[in-house]
Each structure stands twice: as structure tokens, then as C-alpha cells.
Design a protein around this nucleic acid. Structure first.
Lengths: 338, 338
DNA sequence: CGACCTTATGACTACGTAGTCATCCATGCA
DNA sequence: TGCATGGATGACTACGTAGTCATAAGGTCG
């Protein structure tokens, strides 16, 4: 049982395949084969090598392997530093990458101005792929990515179309479905509360709502919260309550996180959904299902979106840019339960 | 302005310092110096090289650099795949690492059984440091980490003491403060709702509560929710409401996320804090400040904790294991506003 | 004005691995 | 028994960078 004690190890952080080779009485090449293509080594030799490796505490060096193989097994992700939605997405990416034996290298940033610096850093690591999940990545940045020749997928960032592949939930259809939903519940006037007007996400979601409302003769104006955050929603809700003598029948909020803020902000003014107004979100965050909010929202099939993104990134990296649009489904909560 | 067009690039992903050297008419060594120790190169030469580099679209290869320098500039983090708290912590780590020009390599796992596999993967990348933030990392895992000779900091995982350095919020004192707070608000009986009884976090927080309550002659029993999640809190709240004829005066919940569930679960039974019971959380998540919950909780100085962890990891990696315990502060919300 | 020092640069090599090619030995078949 | 066949293994090298050492050029001071 001496192989199990592992007590004879020196500083195992420095043990190389050469050391193991010497210990096992074979060549370095054989040691490498044992760990990278085991079927090319005789069972007896393999056992001998593995035994020696364990005795010395040898672990293959992924850095050296990456340099030689021109492949890092690491996927990078550029995401905004804040936001419930992105945190949620990130978690799923990490989990699915682990299943594929890949790692996730995280690049986050607080200020949009940092994106260019981040990109230069990204370029230094020869990543197997890059997930661009941020509205701050504009045409200039996409061009730079293009130049780096790094397989890239834009995640829920429709503006990327053409230059790189993208995977997106069907914002327009989703918004349309939500609009139809509230119209079916009797809404005759509506407000769309967006996060940041200049984002393509906001624009698509608003357009969907307008289209659907329009076909029913229901007016719908756009209001900008100023950020995709709870606080922004909270503040804009108070504005809505103050400025509007008679509130709209329905409020479509552009994202769940903002919607939570809107709900709480309206409650402050004693306006409650669905009693006084129909209210919907967008994204389908776990918190939307929490009893405290129980929000009607468009649930993104995030798991599926992530899967599409990774398939695209890792399995079809060489083919031409392609856009995948996946439909979401309505999650009905209490906020539209007329 | 031709340097600005960048149109003459070949596949920039493969341009090496040799190529730039040829283009600029200098040696490869000089190119390397321009990018790693610019002050050792004459300004004129540096300009010439940078110009050539831009023309070819050259980007230094961090993999090769890491191999040579025996330093990756990457810090790994092992965190549970789920949980609001960990997502929040992760975001902060990422942000502070970016400021230090380091990257964050994420290792997450859904099942505790995966931890060993994850550790072996971690070992392959010669990371500058490792953040172990999970209760699933037990003595066996810590021993393995020890063997890997990788600077490691256990984050909010007090059981790690001795083997590796740790940074923790003062759970016991925090819980004690919360207990004192509700006693001051008139509580004469209490319940502590933990997440998972076997975690050291739970144990410390419960102990702090018991200590303080005990000194005031207030009984306090322990109830296990079964997980550190909203759902677990929601369910256990219903149990509490059903089983107990007269509810305790105060409920101390072991984590904010569970507390949100408890609040909503109690509301379902028409029990409202602070009207019918005093309720507190632990962690100080952003959502605790949301108007919908407005939870009294022990706010962890996460920013500070993260800073301590990174200082420990990157600036004092060689010194002996050391435990840092940082006190939290009470955030008073509506749930104890008697 | 020559010995000395400083600065800039180039040649060379190691970091640890994995793929290519060559070599060796055992086996099978004529 | 001799030769072809194929599996197992070793020697060698490249991946792209940065540090060491050597060298050449320029400048200073006695």
C-alpha cells in the first residue's frame, strides 16, 4: 500500500515527464503517451509509468501542452461585471464547459471603455473560443475579434450579426407574445420600460411589443430606465406613478431584474400588479418564480442557448458565421393574473 | 496613416515575435524586450518594432510566456455552481483580479463528488493561486492542494484552518450581534434556520446565536432547511408555521437566500415580519436591500474579504498559512423594525 | 587620447510537452 | 528458416517566449 501514502513526494509542482521517465525507466515520450494517448502504450508499461507518476506526484503541465498542441482547452467569456442575468448565464456556461472538459476564463469589466483593453488581453491567451456576451462589444470590437481569428459567438447580442456567429433568444417574438398576452387580459394602453435604449436587445423587444400592440390599436410608448438594474427599475417606477395621471393598463418591462425594481417601486406608491396594472418582465430569472414576485415573463431557454453557443463554438468553429435564434416561452405569474 | 488601417494582416493568430523581428529588421530578443521590458530598448527601435507589430497584427502569446516565466497570471477559483452569494463573490474576485492584471479561471461543479476531478484539472494549469470557496473541499482535498504546492486561500470556509490560509467573515460574532439585536427588540424565544447542518458556516453561525441568546435566557433551537437555497427556505417556513402552535419571537436564518424563501413561505401562511416575528438573514446580498424584502442581515464586507484573499494569495504567497477573520456589520431592515 | 564604463542589441538556450520518424523485437507465414 | 508485418518504444525536435551572456557602439574621465 505504499503507493497510497504519497508521502515521498518532493515539491510536486515541479515534477516533469522527464522525472517520471527516469523514475520509471522509460523515455519521456512514453510518459507523454501514457497521459495523452494511452492506447499506444503497452499495459505493463503504462502501469509502471502511472505508478512512478503517482509516487512523484506528477501532473501533466497544461501550459506546455497548450503550447505544443496549439490548443488551450480554455474558452473565454467577456461579460458585464454586474447583473443577475449574466451571472446566471455564466454559471451555465461553466457547467456545460466542465462537461466538455474545457475551462472557462472569465473577463469581466465594469466600464464599457475597458472592453478594448480586455480584448487585447483575450488575444494573448490563444483561447479555443470566445463568448462575447455584452452590449458593449460594438462593430469596432467585433472587427478586432475578426482580425484575431478566434472562434467567437455573440451571446444574446443580436447586433453582432454578420461578422461573427450569434445565438439569441427571439426577442421580438417573445415581446410580441407578452403583448398579446396582456392584450388578451384586457390591456388597452401600454408602456414599455427599457433598460438602455441604444442596446439592440431593448430595440428588438420594444419593436415586438409595438408591432403586436399596434395590430390591436393599443398605444405603447417607450420609457428608458437608464440601466438594466433593480435600482433603475425602482426609480423609473416612481416616475411612472408620479407623472402619469392615469397609469397604462400594462407595463412591459425589458428585463426581469428591472421588473423587480418596478414592482417594488410601484408598491411604494400603492400600485399593485395585477390589481392596478398588468406587468411583465423578460428573461425568466429564477427569482421570477419566487413567491414574492411571481412575475409573468418570457422565459429564455438559457440551457439550450448555451448549448447552441458551445456547439457552434467548439464543434463547428470553421464554418461560416451563422445566427441562431431560439424562441422563448411565456411563464405566467401572478402579475398578469387578472 | 497607413499604420492605422491594419488591412495588410495575414492570419494574425499565428504571427510570432520572429515574424515581427524579421519585419522590423531586428532580432527576436529585441521584439520580446519591447513587449516585456520596454525600458531596455532604445525609443527609436521600440517604435520601429511596435510599428511592425501593428502592421502584422502581432499579439504576444501568453501561453508561451507562461511556460517560460513559470507564471501564468491566472488565478483559479473553485466555487459551487449555484447560489446567489457565490455568484456575487465571484463577480468581485473577477473585478479585483482585472485590476491586478490577472485573469480568473473558473471551476464550478454541481455535485460534491466532482471536486476531486476538478482538483486534478486545476493541478494541470500552473496557476498563480487558487481560491477554494466551497464547503465541499474537505481535509482530503486540502491535503491534495497542499501536495500541489499551489498558493491557496480558503474563502469563507473556516474548516480549512491550519492547512491553507483562509479569509472568513466573523460568523460567530455576526450571529451574536444579530441575536443581541432581536433580543433588544424584545425576542424571548428563537429559532435558527440553517442551510446544511454539517457545514462549518452553519455551525459557527448557530453557535454565535446560541451563545448570545443563552446569556439572556432565551431558548434557541436549530432547524435545518436542507440546502442554502430559496426553495429550501420556502419549504421549511411552511413547516415552521404548521408545526409550531405559537411561533418563536425571532427567526435567525443562516443565509440571505434562504431567508428570502422563509419570508415568502411565511407570507403564504399570513405570517409577516416584523408584525408576527422578527426575522434576520446573513450575508448582506444586494437583494436584501430590495424594497420587497428589506431584510435585516449581517452584511459581509465582501469587497474587503476579497481584497484580503488576493493580497494573501498574490503578495504574501510564501509565508505560513494564516487565518484572517473580518467582522461584518448589521444592516437593519424592515424585518426587525418592531 | 586610451582605458573604462554604459547602453543597446544579438545569439543562444530552456521552459515541458507531443508529434514525427526511426528502430527494435516478436510474431506469422511461406 | 528467412522475410514481411506490425506493435512498442526511443531519439529528436518544434511550439513562442524571455532570460543569460557576449559583443559592439558610444561616451566619460584622467
Amino acid at each position: 500500500m505504499r503507493g497510497n501514502t504519497g508521502s515521498t513526494n518532493t515539491r510536486s509542482g515541479r515534477v516533469t515527464s522527464h522525472d517520471v521517465a527516469t523514475e520509471a525507466g522509460v523515455s519521456q515520450a512514453t510518459v507523454a503517451r501514457v497521459f495523452s494517448s494511452p492506447d499506444k502504450v503497452a499495459p505493463a508499461t503504462s502501469a509502471k509509468v502511472r505508478d512512478a507518476a503517482e509516487r512523484l506526484g506528477y501532473v501533466p503541465n497544461a501550459i506546455a501542452r497548450s503550447l505544443k498542441a496549439q490548443r488551450t482547452d480554455i474558452v473565454g467569456a467577456i461579460v458585464p461585471a454586474a447583473g443577475e442575468y449574466w451571472q446566471h448565464v455564466l454559471t451555465l456556461f461553466s457547467r456545460q464547459l466542465t462537461e466538455r472538459s474545457k475551462q472557462l476564463l472569465l473577463f469581466s469589466f465594469a466600464e464599457p471603455t475597458q472592453v478594448n483593453d480586455v480584448l487585447e488581453t483575450v488575444a494573448r491567451y490563444r483561447l479555443d473560443g470566445l463568448i462575447a456576451a455584452s452590449a458593449s462589444i460594438g462593430p469596432a470590437q467585433l472587427a478586432r475579434i475578426e482580425q484575431l481569428a478566434m472562434p467567437t459567438v455573440a451571446f444574446n447580442q443580436p447586433a453582432a450579426s454578420g461578422l461573427v456567429s450569434s445565438v439569441t433568444v427571439d426577442n421580438e417574438a417573445g415581446s410580441q407574445a407578452l403583448a398579446a398576452h396582456v392584450v388578451g387580459r384586457g390591456a388597452r394602453s401600454a408602456v414599455f420600460v427599457g433598460g438602455i435604449a441604444s442596446t439592440s436587445t431593448d430595440q428588438q423587444r420594444y419593436r415586438g411589443a409595438v408591432t403586436e400592440f399596434g395590430s390591436h390599436g393599443v398605444p405603447c410608448r417607450y420609457v428608458e430606465a437608464g440601466a438594466f438594474s433593480y435600482e433603475a427599475g425602482y426609480k423609473i417606477a416612481q416616475h411612472l406613478a408620479d407623472d402619469t395621471p392615469d397609469l397604462a393598463d400594462a407595463i412591459l418591462v425589458g428585463s426581469d431584474e428591472v421588473a423587480f425594481g418596478v414592482i417594488d417601486g410601484l408598491r411604494e406608491r400603492d400600485i399593485e400588479a395585477p390589481r392596478d396594472v398588468l406587468l411583465t418582465g423578460f428573461d425568466g430569472l429564477p427569482q421570477a418564480s419566487w413567491a414574492g414576485y411571481d412575475l409573468t415573463t418570457l422565459e429564455q431557454p438559457i440551457e439550450l442557448l448555451v448549448e447552441h453557443a458551445l456547439t457552434r463554438l467548439l464543434d463547428q468553429a470553421d464554418s461560416d458565421p451563422h445566427d441562431v435564434v431560439v424562441p422563448g416561452t411565456i411563464r405566467q405569474g401572478r402579475t398578469t393574473h387578472a
